[in-house]
Amino acid sequence: MVKSKNDLLFEILIAVIITLVGLACLIPILFVISYSFTPMEEVLRNGGFVLIPRHVTLSAYRFMLKNEMLISALQNSAFITVVGTAINMVVTMMLAYPLSRTYLPGRGLFIKLIVFTMIFSAGTIPTYLVVKETGVINSLWALIFPSLVTVYNFIVMKSFFEGLPNDLFESARIDGAGEFKILFRIVLPLSLPIITTISLYYAVSHWNVYTAAILYIQDANKMPLQVILRRMIDAARTIDLNVEDEMPPETMRMAAVCIATAPIIVIYPFIQRYFVQGTLAGAVKG
């Protein structure tokens, strides 16, 4: 691969860049993880900065895991993430594909209508009233339907579809394939990188949902993970208001990040392979 001196220099340069980025991201993350496992005394003795703890404690995790709400919160979050993302993807693709076809009459109007909602938003109370009218309030669907399509994700997907070579569609149409067949048989397999990306974006936003949950959900047993984690931290944080509490809130906050992020870190490497170059070329040749 490496051929000339120039190339070698270039390789070194980009290796340095990605290494620096990696370190800049790794050290703070390591700090968060270690913090969650380090006894408070050791954290304090080190001026709040511990990268590799000498002693390890699980007290923050034990404290959080014994909370009976955590299990239901995990279930709720898993449900909205899996079901929500699936519905998001189907609707977004079905919206993005037709609107990426430049020959579709009225295309510009539809896109403008969609982009307009990114700029003009209605505010909390009116949106709440509509969510209530549609009958999903205080159910997990309130976290799925009102965020069915994100304008940003729609635009990214649409522009990816626009970049697909036109002759693909032509030949398919000549073969007599309908639009639905083209979307699911041709576009979809060719778009794995972008589909993975957008799914990831949707999934993470469902997994991290907080504001919508506290506005649209009232019952504690229907709350998603982030709300329950934040409640546990807040209960420990109010130390000057409430003279009773004794769990270091910082440690809990760090542990909460680890609990909330771990599933995504575990899943990510499995989806990462879809980012590999060459998906499209193979398809065209084949």
Partner: peptide, 10 residues
């Protein structure tokens, strides 16, 4: 706006 630490869910 806040519940005591260890508030019972049930």
């Amino acid at each position: 706006n806040t519940l005591g630490n260890g508030w019972p869910a049930d």
